[in-house]
Design a protein around this nucleic acid. Structure first.
Lengths: 202, 202
DNA sequence: GCGGTAACTTACCCTCGGGTCACTTTACGC
DNA sequence: GCGTAAAGTGACCCGAGGGTAAGTTACCGC
């Protein structure tokens, strides 16, 4: 009764604890990368020990996959919805950014899981991440193609490069955002709108 | 005489061997990040063993610092020269890109050392990398300011964001370039010129 | 009340990688 | 030729971190 004891207490149902661990894992994996993240540190963050983490997720890869799927599914869904809605090519980048910011407003590290380069080159994680990237790249390629053909530039390799730069832009915007927790998704979207209008007239 | 023996041969003067190791280290650190890179793997790449690597560089940090300083010095020097030359704000991005591509044409992973997020948060490496980044960010900030004031947009936070996005753009261009070894610095510059003209009319 | 199960821990193993030691072989000056 | 120094190695130590075995506590249904 005094203070909840350290050992053996059924403090929380599994579902809830798993969700906590996925959130903590996403932050830690996003911050330090797969290679740099420590399982004991992730467990410590939610006030639990390593074996419980292993009981629930089996392995480091299992936890990473859980985090990755949550992030990847939400992201691809949000982007797909936005792209499906259509609109002028020059308005699409801002719409997609807005969708991403809204999706990850309270989960800003999630984006990085798809692009973590410290993940082992082969295996389930690499395959799953590559698959999410492939789907997102397809959207980026589509958007870039629409943007470029409207301007008469059709070199397919140029378009590939543009698509990759686009993902890099999103990446750096999110990194910048992570360092400014006070800025919410709406403010971020407004800032991007201002910048795009100012720089490119879009 | 048959085959050079594995042990004890004075195969190469120290200076030359160190240079080899710095090149190999740059590639490995750039590819896998500080945390993911292995000293024995770097030694293996140049056909040598770990103790020699330690004899020459003292520690993993020592080797990383050697790689970082080589990359950072060349980069800041190239960018500083380009920025000092001046010109229209809208031409500067392409000029800087050209300088970076030329500097790192045969050393494409070098750029990543300055932005490696897997280095320990405190210590010599973090300090040195932060210092290089600070100098480069100052140039980016200057360029972004010139670009924006010409357009009447002067929000300093917007300008910060633009500067960070700019480094992200460089980052993704170099990643794309790394995957296409056949494309040299001139071709890369030409591609960027084409894209900027097509997309923004710059 | 009590057995079963779910939540949770302590204490351990093992590999991998940073770092070191003692040693061996070659080149070079004399 | 030979002593010395430089180039280089095999074999080791050790700490960190992924992963596991066995046990402990608390709730829940009966």
């Amino acid at each position: 009764m005094t203070q909840s004891r350290a050992v053996g207490t059924k403090g929380m149902p599994r579902e809830e604890r798993e969700a906590q661990l996925v959130v903590a894992g996403t932050e830690e994996f996003g911050r330090a990368g797969y290679a740099g993240a420590s399982m004991v540190e992730i467990a410590r963050r939610v006030g639990v020990t390593k074996p419980l983490l292993y009981q629930y997720f089996g392995s480091k890869d299992g936890l990473y996959l859980a985090c990755l799927h949550r992030a990847g599914d939400r992201l691809t869904e949000g982007v797909a919805t936005t792209m499906a809605a259509g609109g002028e090519p020059e308005r699409m980048p801002l719409k997609v950014l807005s969708a991403i910011f809204t999706t990850f407003d309270h989960d800003r590290y999630a984006w990085r899981l798809l692009r973590d380069e410290t993940v082992p080159a082969t295996g389930d994680i690499a395959a799953a991440a590559a698959d999410y990237r492939r789907r997102l790249d397809a959207f980026a390629l589509l958007g870039a193609t629409q943007l470029m053909t409207a301007r008469g530039l059709a070199d397919p390799v140029d378009i590939e490069a543009i698509a990759q730069v686009w993902t890099g832009v999103v990446d750096s915007l999110i990194s910048w955002w992570i360092d400014r927790p006070g800025e919410d998704a709406a403010a971020m979207t407004a800032r991007c709108a201002r910048i795009m209008t100012g720089l490119f007239g879009w």
